Amino acid sequence: HYVEVNGKKIQATSAEEAEKIAKKFAKIYNATVLDLGNYYKVT
């Protein structure tokens, strides 16, 4: 599981952790979290 933010991949140990990381970055960048199955993308 990982999160992609601005083209950078951030490794996460679980889907739950990946979701938390994605939501945190989405809040910082006022962005949207896309759940793409095996990873989250912040756009």
Rank of each mutant, 00 (worst) to 15 (best):
35 D>S: 09
25 F>I: 12
14 S>W: 07
30 N>Q: 09
28 I>S: 06
28 I>P: 02
28 I>K: 12
34 L>C: 11
34 L>A: 06
18 A>V: 02
23 K>V: 09
16 E>Q: 11
18 A>N: 01
13 T>E: 12
27 K>W: 13
25 F>L: 13
34 L>G: 02
42 V>W: 05
27 K>P: 00
19 E>V: 09
37 G>T: 04
5 V>T: 02
20 K>Y: 12
7 G>Y: 05
36 L>M: 15
41 K>R: 10
38 N>H: 13
2 Y>K: 04
17 E>Q: 11
28 I>T: 07
11 Q>K: 12
27 K>D: 08
11 Q>D: 08
41 K>Y: 09
40 Y>R: 01
40 Y>N: 02
4 E>A: 04
7 G>T: 03
35 D>T: 09
17 E>M: 10
43 T>D: 09
37 G>Y: 07
33 V>G: 01
19 E>N: 08
8 K>A: 08
37 G>E: 06
43 T>W: 12
37 G>D: 07
22 A>M: 04
5 V>K: 01
36 L>Q: 06
20 K>G: 07
23 K>R: 14
40 Y>F: 13
4 E>D: 07
41 K>M: 10
2 Y>N: 01
37 G>Q: 06
15 A>L: 14
10 I>P: 00
5 V>S: 00
4 E>T: 05
17 E>W: 07
1 H>Q: 05
1 H>S: 09
16 E>K: 12
9 K>Y: 11
38 N>D: 11
17 E>F: 07
32 T>P: 06
42 V>K: 03
42 V>N: 03
10 I>C: 13
19 E>M: 15
11 Q>V: 13
41 K>Q: 10
20 K>L: 11
15 A>N: 09
43 T>L: 13
5 V>P: 00
38 N>E: 09
18 A>C: 07
42 V>L: 08
22 A>L: 04
32 T>N: 09
26 A>L: 05
23 K>Y: 14
9 K>D: 01
25 F>P: 00
12 A>S: 05
19 E>Y: 15
10 I>M: 06
40 Y>I: 08
41 K>N: 04
24 K>S: 11
25 F>A: 02
20 K>C: 15
38 N>T: 14
25 F>Q: 02
2 Y>E: 01
20 K>V: 09
30 N>C: 11
6 N>K: 08
15 A>V: 10
39 Y>E: 03
28 I>N: 05
22 A>N: 00
9 K>G: 02
6 N>P: 02
1 H>A: 08
6 N>V: 05
9 K>Q: 08
23 K>L: 13
5 V>L: 09
23 K>P: 00
24 K>F: 15
25 F>G: 00
18 A>S: 03
38 N>G: 15
30 N>V: 05
9 K>H: 09
5 V>R: 01
32 T>A: 09
3 V>F: 02
26 A>G: 06
4 E>N: 04
34 L>W: 07
40 Y>Q: 02
13 T>Y: 11
19 E>D: 05
2 Y>F: 09
11 Q>T: 12
21 I>V: 06
21 I>F: 05
38 N>Y: 13
32 T>M: 11
2 Y>V: 06
24 K>T: 11
10 I>Q: 01
5 V>D: 00
36 L>Y: 13
29 Y>F: 12
16 E>R: 12
42 V>D: 03
13 T>P: 10
36 L>A: 05
9 K>A: 06
22 A>T: 02
41 K>W: 06
18 A>K: 01
41 K>S: 09
42 V>P: 03
9 K>L: 12
20 K>H: 09
30 N>T: 05
7 G>W: 05
35 D>R: 14
20 K>T: 10
39 Y>H: 09
23 K>S: 09
41 K>V: 15
25 F>M: 09
8 K>E: 09
3 V>Y: 03
2 Y>A: 03
7 G>L: 04
18 A>L: 03
8 K>R: 14
12 A>I: 04
12 A>F: 10
21 I>N: 01
3 V>I: 07
25 F>T: 00
33 V>M: 06
13 T>I: 11
28 I>W: 14
29 Y>W: 10
41 K>F: 09
8 K>S: 08
30 N>F: 08
23 K>F: 12
15 A>G: 07
39 Y>P: 00
43 T>E: 12
29 Y>P: 04
18 A>P: 00
26 A>R: 05
19 E>P: 00
31 A>F: 09
10 I>E: 01
19 E>K: 13
16 E>Y: 11
25 F>D: 00
31 A>V: 09
28 I>D: 06
14 S>I: 04
24 K>W: 15
9 K>R: 14
32 T>H: 10
8 K>T: 11
31 A>Q: 05
3 V>R: 01
20 K>W: 13
2 Y>M: 05
43 T>V: 15
10 I>H: 06
33 V>Q: 01
36 L>W: 03
43 T>N: 08
30 N>G: 14
14 S>D: 07
14 S>Q: 02
25 F>S: 00
5 V>F: 14
9 K>S: 05
1 H>G: 03
34 L>S: 06
22 A>G: 01
1 H>K: 12
21 I>L: 12
19 E>I: 12
16 E>N: 08
12 A>T: 12
2 Y>P: 01
40 Y>E: 01
33 V>A: 05
38 N>C: 13
14 S>G: 05
15 A>W: 12
3 V>P: 00
23 K>E: 08
38 N>A: 11
14 S>R: 03
15 A>R: 15
14 S>K: 02
12 A>E: 01
32 T>D: 09
9 K>I: 15
7 G>A: 04
34 L>Q: 11
27 K>V: 11
37 G>R: 01
22 A>I: 03
43 T>A: 09
36 L>T: 04
42 V>Q: 03
37 G>V: 07
25 F>Y: 13
1 H>N: 07
19 E>W: 15
7 G>S: 04
9 K>M: 12
8 K>C: 15
3 V>D: 00
11 Q>N: 12
11 Q>G: 09
32 T>L: 11
34 L>K: 07
16 E>T: 09
16 E>F: 10
28 I>G: 04
15 A>H: 14
24 K>Q: 12
43 T>H: 10
32 T>V: 13
18 A>I: 03
4 E>C: 15
25 F>V: 05
